[in-house]
Amino acid sequence: MELPIEIPMEIPGLLNYWIVIVLMMAGFYVVISHGNLVKKMVGLSVFQVAVFVLYISMSKIDGGSAPILDDAIKQYSNPLPHVLILTAIVVGVATTALGLALIVRVRDAYGTIEEDEILEQERNDT
């Protein structure tokens, strides 16, 4: 059967990267366009998850199973990205907590967590 338009072979194989890019850009947009600091943190964590998905999708091998050794299994997925992302997730939540703590202190000092209002106060001071 002849398709009317020729679809390049690599399109379905690259779909995982494109999903990652859409998620990444969604997180990036939240970070650069919103003034609320908590929302910026949520955007950063969306971005972070996009990076994790990128690594994990690269580690998947067709027909490969989870990397736990067993005699019956011949093909495993790549374990190294799993290790990197495993630690990165926990480090990510620790740094998120640090960022949230900074937000709480910013609210102590300025009474608001909106970036625009903080800049306004700074300008009035000088």
Binding site: V90, V93, A94, A97, L100, A101, V104
Partner: peptide, 16 residues
Amino acid sequence: TVATTMVTIFFVFAGQ
């Protein structure tokens, strides 16, 4: 370390 970190962070946040 991970367990006590999470407990510490939560208690510090909730203790506000």
